[in-house]
């Protein structure tokens, strides 16, 4: 325990004028410092693989999406932003989503879908900006969500990296 020191103001401090100059000496020093502001739209925010932007669907190298519409991301989503309608396909995986929508107005970018996905089909991209004229335009369907795997590769590698470090692998 330490009792905080409080002292009465001295006469010089009560006189106000010397204190004004002391305060101004601090504020004027700031004129000569490097500015810390960023001209935002011209200088966008730096993003890297740690950045959790909007979720995107992985398109594999063969041109199909990796999603098998198991519905795990839909269940894991705390904001009820994801809607999936599954259907059958002739491909070997047998199931694929017929409709996959993420309501970007609801999405809170928590990354729970990315964690829950057992097929590496959904990852957080570094895309952050979100604007549209209509609400319907912000409900992203599959076409808007698809990204080639190469674009999401840094994030995929990062998620695997923290998974490795994070849990001992069992035999």
């Amino acid at each position: 325990m330490v009792i905080v020191q409080r002292k009465e103001l001295t006469l010089a401090e009560r006189l106000y004028l010397p204190e004004i100059f002391r305060g101004l000496s601090i504020t004027f020093r700031k004129f000569f410092e490097k500015p810390i502001t960023r001209q935002y739209p011209e200088e966008p925010l730096p993003t890297d693989e740690v950045t959790r932007g909007q979720p995107r669907l992985v398109v594999k190298d063969d041109g199909n999406i990796a999603c098998v519409s198991c519905g795990m991301c839909e269940i894991a989503c705390p904001a009820y932003a994801i809607t999936i309608d599954g259907g059958e396909t002739d491909r070997q995986i047998e199931r694929e989503p017929k409709r996959f929508e993420i309501d970007m107005l609801r999405c809170i970018l928590c990354g729970f879908c990315e964690e829950a996905c057992p097929k590496d089909a959904i990852f957080m991209s570094n895309e952050l900006e979100l604007a549209d004229y209509t609400r319907r335009g912000l409900i992203y369907d599959m076409e808007k969500l698809k990204r080639p795997k190469s674009a999401l590769q840094p994030r995929i590698d990062y998620v695997y990296k923290i998974n490795k470090r994070w849990r001992r692998t069992q035999a």
């Binding site: 829950a116 590496d120 001992r168 069992q170």
Partner: peptide
């Protein structure tokens, strides 16, 4: 590392 509460590693899944 407790499979009751924590998700298993992605590569093992």
């Amino acid at each position: 590392e407790d499979r009751r509460y924590v998700l298993p590693p992605k590569d093992l899944v």
